[in-house]
Design a protein around this nucleic acid. Structure first.
Lengths: 200, 200, 200, 200
DNA sequence: ACTTAATCGAGACGGTACGTCACGTCTTAAG
DNA sequence: CTTAAGACGTGACGTACCGTCTCGATTAAGT
């Protein structure tokens, strides 16, 4: 019955809830990384996990929400922000790491597709903001606020806007790839913003 | 069934090619604006236009490509960039116009959904870059190059990066709405970038 | 996909409409006779016929309607009523034939199940009356009317009621099998009714 | 979920067996009368009774058996047969009462649906015959036997057959409604059978 | 009276079937 | 020869029930 890859047949009876959840998330994450959002299907996840579609529908409100949860369970994020005392160094390092992640790992395919799916999947949109983008924004904002207190950034600057001008610029090239993501791009972002592009 | 508006019954035979194309694009655009990408379907477009699905498949390689073409045929873009001689004024005006378009018109729903769809629709992605984003980038880059020649922007700045830091920041808030698009945001983007956010 | 018996794989493309209809009805009839109404499923019929569930839903409004159509296509009814000139002989022959059909052939299982299903399947109920029971009633009523004209049955008798007292009695034993259907039963039905059971 | 009426929240622990049985049967009967066999579901009964599906499965072997038990617990049958000394009067009265019950009360929907369900539910079939039809047959047969002893019915007549020709005829019109159940029908049944329909 | 076994409810799980939607392909018929 | 009309197979979706199983809580019977 619609079993593309090893369908993982177990005993018929009910398995413990937590085990089912884990296996489903595992399967979802693997399928997402393997086929991308285009081939990501509740049906396939259920088959891979040896679970029932009904069970998936009960816990994850939409295909996108399931995909995001699967992504988290497989990738296992580290939320760290360097703090060397120099904001230029820290921002550059962080953005270069982001560029690397998006250009050289499977996240570079998955994250844009999740954001894409979120445009027509309200459940995913909310989950993505809450669990992914908001915490990362917060880390960057905190770093900028610390830089303000150290006198490296003007106090009247809105840190949130700065975040959009750094990471948003990266997402722009990721989602609408007119131009590629490069290390030079990462450095130019920070330099432009700290120094300004206007004539002195 | 699935005929929201007049199903347009005609004879079975062939109609002139151009007429069919026009009517299909008209229907596609209207459906896209009315229901968004979520309810946008080749089937519905065909029904609305009184055309055959086969015909649509012949001319538009994917659902996204059809949606984009329909969008253009209905919206009718104006590609203008003000040139007052002051780059700060021009950029602010242009970005405020963009923010207005995305916040107060139907484009604000449609464009993000098209970008979203483009993440899993290569045909749409290519078409979108070629016909939408690339020309707009070019306009902004030209304006920045003119500003360089006027001495308003440093010559060593990569104009493309600046574009990402202005419009990309807007797209960021559009696609991942942690924070809203506002006029103050538009102004802060230009100010941050021209003046720089670092301590003088 | 849920293929219990030979799923009949053909070329992928579309087959002519009439052929599909024939094959579906064939499969439906066979499944009905093989498993009875309990195991009769739209899904199984589709699999057996190598057809799509959607197609079945398009043409037959309910599971029961499909089963009835399948029954007809497989059994192929003969609608004949003997006319020897003697109504007692004709009725007895016809009812004995009916008893034989219900007791010794597969119809004896299928017809009761169809009637049973019809109690909660309005589509089937209407189709059954129109295509099965009504024509058979009409034949019997005609025979009784002829008997009236020959002076074998009183003119003031309602032939429809007589039909219920003959065939309805058989259906009674068929549907609520407190007692079996036998040849003696068939004969007693006619005798009771023609002669009367009261003291002379 | 699926709790139309008061979901009946109790403590988790075990309740007295008899109380559970009573409440389940009450709920089953009400649901059956309210929605008919089509909407009758073990799941709904369990929810209405605040009981567990497992408990229902333990005591009633099939959906139909539960429905029948619920019907009895709510309707509460009176098994009486008039005995005026005149069999024609008694039969007519009894059949008219039956016609009234089936035409003007909720039993008229429920009984046919139970018989229908019994065609594919052996448990229900057996229970129905044992608890419903057989006792009623017996009453009628006894009345006919008494009539024989009074000389109102010929001694060589099989009373069981007569029962089928009276009540079976009614069930016929009930289950296959080509024609309606009416009082005239009830009277004609008895008249036809007692007097006979043949020419004198 | 106090264990202890029985059985309840709650609820999740795998499974079967349903009815629906949209897709892309194919056949047939019309112009 | 292009088009429309429309049917078909496919894949997926979301839902409804079913019968089973685990778990914790409570009652009732046996000591």
């Amino acid at each position: 019955m619609t079993q593309s890859a090893e369908p993982v047949r177990r005993g018929r009876g009910r398995r413990p809830t937590d085990q089912v959840r884990r296996e489903v998330l595992q399967a979802a994450g693997e399928l997402l990384l393997a086929e991308g959002m285009g081939g990501f299907t509740i049906e396939k996840v259920a088959a891979l996990a040896g679970a029932s579609r009904v069970t998936l529908h009960k816990w994850w409100p939409s295909k996108g929400a399931l995909a995001l949860a699967g992504y988290f369970s497989v990738v296992g994020h580290t939320l760290a922000f360097p703090d060397t005392g120099d904001i230029a160094t820290d921002l550059t390092a962080q953005i270069r790491a982001f560029v690397h992640l998006m250009r050289d790992t499977r996240a570079g395919h998955v994250i844009p597709e999740l954001i894409g799916q979120a445009q027509t999947d309200a459940e995913l949109s909310a989950a993505y903001r809450e669990r992914y983008s908001a915490p990362r924004r917060a880390l960057a904002v905190e770093a900028l606020e610390r830089a303000k207190q150290r006198g490296q950034v003007r106090a009247d600057v809105d840190s949130e806007v700065v975040v959009d001008q750094l990471w948003g610029a990266c997402y722009h090239r990721l989602l609408i790839p007119d131009l590629p993501l490069t290390d030079e791009f990462a450095e130019a972002l920070v330099a432009n913003l700290l120094t300004g592009i206007g004539r002195p």
